[in-house]
């Protein structure tokens, strides 16, 4: 990682494509979260077609079909944009790691689509869990691409040492990855109310508290660090505190819904928001870590001109 070179600023079209892919992937994470919240994953039982066609009849009128088929349509769009991005990086970017990230994104989006399809055909809950977790990992890859193609990656705003952010950054990324994996497993357990008594829930709670304490330390270090590394890490800490709040709200809602019946709309959206903010935290953790490992850049006039 320490041998990362920032290289030249990538073409503006690639940067736009990268940001578009990331934003679309965020929407996809939300759509996927809704599929799980609404238990709509098997409402379209065939794949790659939907009820034998490109679009099932009246799919937009029927709640669960709209949720699942809408997820597929968004996923297809993300796959197209990601493939274009990956190919553009491979053809135009001179940095080996950027090209590798582009190819990894293509491989990940195709694997993710295949897993989603096989989950439906094989009626496999295990594969649904892997699909949910891998979706977050794919989001992390796109976040890395957006980071290394951004102006701030090649514009060395801060020349100070980012080393103090590296170790806690790795720990934080690992904790977030683990927490997301556990969260996905909890989300795919049958019977949402029973989740709260499961040992995995207590592990989720424990890691959540660990993340909270780790974020306090990280925030203190980030406050002493300038540039994109410090800025991104501070944002990460803010998102993590929001995420802890959403986690508490989600658990409370599940507890209440278990006692009083379905909580309807909130039960669909609140856990989904928790998942989506989790993806956002993962993306920021990836970006912050990359910035922390970025070497100081030798300014050159051409680069400054590019940025202006």
């Amino acid at each position: 990682m320490s041998e990362l070179s920032t290289g030249n600023l990538p073409d503006r079209k690639i940067r736009v494509l990268a940001v578009a892919a990331l934003l679309m992937a965020f929407v996809l994470v939300v759509a996927g979260g809704l599929v799980t919240s609404r238990d709509a994953g098997l409402a379209v039982p065939d794949w790659p077609l939907s009820y034998g066609g490109i679009n099932p009849p009246r799919w937009y009128e029927i709640d669960k079909v709209r949720t699942e088929h809408g997820h597929r349509l968004i996923a297809a769009s993300v796959a197209v944009v990601t493939c274009l991005l990956g190919l553009a990086l491979y053809r135009n970017d001179t940095r080996k790691y950027a090209r590798t990230l582009g190819l990894a994104a293509i491989a990940a989006v195709l694997a993710q689509a295949l897993m989603g399809g096989l989950r439906v055909i094989w009626l496999s809950l295990d594969l649904a869990m892997v699909h949910g977790w891998f979706g977050q990992a794919f989001f992390g890859i796109l976040a890395a691409i957006v980071t290394v193609t951004s102006p701030s990656w090649v514009n060395d705003e801060a020349l100070e040492d980012h080393t103090p952010l590296q170790r806690p950054g790795i720990i934080m990324l690992s904790l977030i990855g683990l927490q997301l994996a556990i969260g996905v497993s909890l989300r795919h357990m049958p019977g949402s109310a029973g989740v709260l008594g499961h040992p995995l829930f207590y592990l989720h709670l424990l890691i959540g508290l660990s993340i909270l304490f780790a974020s306090l330390r990280l925030a203190r270090q980030a406050s002493r660090t300038g540039g994109p590394a410090g800025r991104t890490t501070r944002r990460l800490c803010g998102v993590l505190w929001l995420q802890v709040g959403l986690g508490i709200a989600t658990a409370t809602l599940l507890q209440l819904s278990g006692q009083e019946g379905s909580a309807g709309l909130a039960l669909s959206w609140l856990p989904t928001l928790h998942v989506a903010v989790g993806a956002g935290a993962l993306g920021l953790a990836v970006a912050g870590l990359l910035y922390a490992y970025r070497p100081p850049l030798q300014r050159d006039e051409q680069l400054a001109a590019d940025l202006n």
């Binding site: 098997l42 379209v44 039982p45 065939d46 009820y51 034998g52 066609g53 099932p56 009849p57 439906v120 009626l123």
Partner: peptide, 8 residues
């Protein structure tokens, strides 16, 4: 074996 069949 489980089955899940579309009937559109």
């Amino acid at each position: 074996k489980q089955f899940n069949q579309a009937m559109p």
